[in-house]
Design a protein around this nucleic acid. Structure first.
Lengths: 220, 220
DNA sequence: ATTTATATGTCGCAA
DNA sequence: TTGCGACGTATAAAT
């Protein structure tokens, strides 16, 4: 990893064109070949960058970064270098994440009564030709219900569920099939579209559900 | 801006939990208060980060970054510091972008004849219950046309336009409503889906359109 | 402040 | 390779 602090101007041409006037910035060159130009704000997002695979050519105050795959390019005009150091970091062992949506789906599968008393789970990840339905249930009346689980409910999710419902409803073993759109929060537009298509919306309290499920969080 | 190269381990807790084993990494501390931890790959993306507003407390080999707004926290265990330098970058003049979708939509709104002679614009951002249609036009025959503008035409855009068309077509003042999908480039699958739904596809030459519109680029 | 659409989104997985 | 969905998405525009 190479860290360069320099007065520089930058021009990017590719999916869009962008220009950075002359100023002092950090140029971060990683071992993966990537180059990014940072100001002292915008959190971790650089002003300009080039993702690998790309090549960096340093030529008399003009650094050119050219993408290998596309015709994207980054031209950095260097006026003055204030700092330049390289460091061997080695390979990173990587990070361990514990996600949200997968966990949410699992919690709901274990607590389908969240949707109503008498509900039971038929299958998680119920397969269809266009992909698995998150949860397939039967409600208290025995009607089939396909549940789509999202962390944030947006229009795309309603579309996805609609496609599943159309397919599932063709199966005489399952038909008629209701739809439930479950998410921590549901955007008004998504709710509108869901209602328009006869799909129920359920907002889920993730923390409460986790509290119900996680013994370490139980009060008794 | 402060650059620290250190052997460290990191724990993040907030919207998810994540752990980074001990390794050598870059810790980037910006003037905006943000802290990000970088490995030597993943292009410009850090392994972990904290966005401002947040506070960094350094305490005997344990750096704690606490979000001011939420209860997100980043705990960095420092084993050894290999480099530590600070640099005054000043305020960045900012970057100038060109070529985004808004500009494309504006250009097309000002040049609806791009779609055909005799076309006129009814409204830009024509409102519907599920969001605004980019351009609503009348073609040379007076037929209503909804135009969806994208930089890159993909399936999502066709779906979006389809939803608008379904709604608009219910309005007797507008019906029947045709659809036009306009983009700099249109993916084959998107084109296929559009054709299947009777939606016309128009690829737009952005540079030519800008040349038509921008007097400084005109040749005469 | 909240909601919505955009992004040089990036990233990972599966067909 | 392409398509598709998730992301600690982030961020700017519009209500």
């Amino acid at each position: 990893m190479r860290l360069v602090i320099a007065r520089c101007q930058v021009d990017y041409a590719g999916r869009l064109t962008a220009h950075l006037p002359m100023a002092t910035r950090l140029i971060l060159i990683k071992a993966d070949g990537s180059v990014s130009v940072h100001a002292d704000d915008r959190a971790y997002k650089p002003l300009n960058w080039m993702s690998p695979p790309c090549t960096l050519v340093e030529d008399d105050g003009v650094w050119t970064v050219q993408s290998t795959k596309t015709d994207d390019s980054l031209v950095i005009g260097i006026e003055e270098i204030l700092h330049d150091s390289s460091h061997d970091l080695g390979v990173d062992p990587g990070l361990v994440k514990d996600g949200v949506e997968a966990h949410l789906q699992q919690l709901l599968a274990e607590n389908v009564e969240t949707f109503g008393a008498g509900w039971r789970l038929v299958r998680r990840e119920y397969p269809t030709p266009i992909g698995p339905v998150d949860l397939l249930c039967r409600d208290e009346a025995g009607t089939t219900v396909a549940v789509e689980v999202k962390r944030r409910g947006e229009i795309d999710g309603v579309e996805q569920l609609s496609r599943y419902l159309e397919l599932l409803d063709r199966d005489p073993q399952l038909s008629p099939v209701r739809g439930v759109f479950a998410a921590q929060e549901i955007r008004p537009q998504a709710r509108t579209l869901a209602n328009d298509r006869g799909i129920s919306c359920v907002t889920v309290d993730y923390d409460a559900l986790r509290g119900v499920d996680d013994p370490s969080e139980r009060l008794f």
